[in-house]
Amino acid sequence: MAADAKRIELAAGSKLVARYLLLALVAAIVLFPVYAAVMVAQKSLTELGSLDVLVPDRIDLGSVPTALGEARMGRYLVNSAVVSVAIVIGQVVTSVLAGYALAFLDFTGRRALLAAVAASLIIPFEVTVVVNFETVQQLGGVDTYWALVLPFVAFPLGIFLMRQAFLGIPRDLLDAAVVDGYGHLGILRSVALPLVRSTVAALSLFSFLLAWNQYLWPLLVTNRDDRRTVQIGLKQLTGAVGPDLGVIMTATLLATIPILVLLVVFERQLIRGLTAGSVKG
């Protein structure tokens, strides 16, 4: 009996080890590109020609200044931050205002507007890029911040998310505010907006991710280095620092750090935002 019990225990133990081994193996595969990047980032040009590059033999941040300076990642990061924050603020403001109106106000053209927002929801930006580029060119917007920001300041999905969140507020709370003497603007500021904070947070995070990761539009409307955002800055790296893969990988990792920080801080909102729906990858 005791021997049997021991055998079962052993079997369970080895099963557990097998599970961990499988998890570790899969984790290693998923993580490999990032691991390799971290290793390459710390190696000099001369070390790249061998597999030793994968050996974690030191912590060397030597390529960070090169990436930030010579490779202009510092400038790109600042540009991306400015543009992304501006887009987030714009989207939140327009979504909150329009979402509130579509949820609670009775006005001429309400149904038409809902239909128009729904239509905008299914029009991918890639389709409108031909004419938007023309518009920005005609308005002299190439290499300006506003050209990077303005087209994204209204976000159909954001408008719908906010409308849905407002509609989810218990009706009694809104009625109580009406009886307490508040008009729509007062209700929006004092009751409705504080009650949909979590949706605003999810929307902000989601829209920041989309804005930060944008590629096509910044590529089209920026030519000058001092206006480029970080994503398209990455592609220019090979031109800027030549074949120094270490600097390129450092720069690539630097482009990811702001997002990593955000994700760790706002894990909960991220899941909400993602499940609420994404159209653009």
């Binding site: 218990p170 009694d172 709370l173 009625d175 109580a176 009406v178 009886v179 307490d180 003497g181 508040y182 008009g183 004092s190 009751v191 504080p194 009650l195 904070r197």
Partner: peptide, 20 residues
């Protein structure tokens, strides 16, 4: 308008603002 009527209302759900 409701706010000009000089009335106050107590709701079944109490309608207390949870954030205040």
């Amino acid at each position: 308008d409701a706010k000009e009527r000089d009335i106050a209302m107590v709701f079944q759900s109490y309608a207390l603002y949870p954030h205040m």
